[in-house]
C-alpha cells in the first residue's frame, strides 16, 4: 500500500489500483455522512479531484493518486458511508482504477514514509 500527502492510499493488484482515504484522514474528518464516488468509465489524472467525502462539518475533495480509468466504485458507500470510518483502509475503499502508468505508484510514499510525514504535520 502506498500513500499521498493528501491522505489517500493506493493498493495495486496487477494493473488495477484500489483507492481510499487513510485512517488518519478518516479520523480527522469525523463522522462521514456521504461519499460521492466517481462514475465508472471516467478517465482520471493523478492530482485531479475525483471523489468527494462529506462529514457533517466539511466536504472534502479526494484526489486521484494515480492516473487511469475508473472501473469500479464501492457500492457500499452509498448506503453505508460510515464504512469509511469503520474500515478506512479496507472495506471503505472509494474506487478501483485501471492504471495507465504503473510508475506513478512507485513514486508514492510507503507506510513508513507516510507515518514520518504525519509526524511533521
Amino acid at each position: 500500500m502506498r500513500f499521498t500527502k493528501d491522505h489517500e492510499w493506493v493498493e495495486l493488484d496487477g494493473d488495477v489500483a484500489t483507492i481510499g482515504i487513510t485512517a488518519h484522514a478518516a479520523e480527522q474528518l469525523g463522522d462521514v455522512v456521504f461519499v460521492e464516488t466517481p462514475e465508472v468509465g471516467k478517465q482520471v489524472k493523478a492530482g485531479d479531484a475525483f471523489a468527494v467525502v462529506e462529514s457533517v462539518k466539511a466536504a472534502s475533495d479526494v484526489y486521484a493518486p494515480i492516473s487511469g480509468e475508473v472501473v469500479e466504485a464501492n457500492p457500499e458507500l452509498d448506503s453505508a458511508p460510515e464504512t469509511v470510518n469503520a474500515s478506512p483502509e479496507a472495506g471503505g475503499w472509494f474506487a478501483k482504477v485501471k492504471v495507465s502508468d504503473p510508475a506513478q505508484f512507485e513514486a508514492l510514499m510507503d507506510r513508513d514514509a507516510y507515518e514520518a510525514f504525519l509526524q511533521t504535520q
Binding site: S55, V56, A58, A59
Partner: peptide, 13 residues
Amino acid sequence: TLSTREQHIRREK
C-alpha cells in the same frame, strides 16, 4: 442538515 452543500462550508464549490 446536508449543509455541506452550502456556501458557509463548501464556499466556491
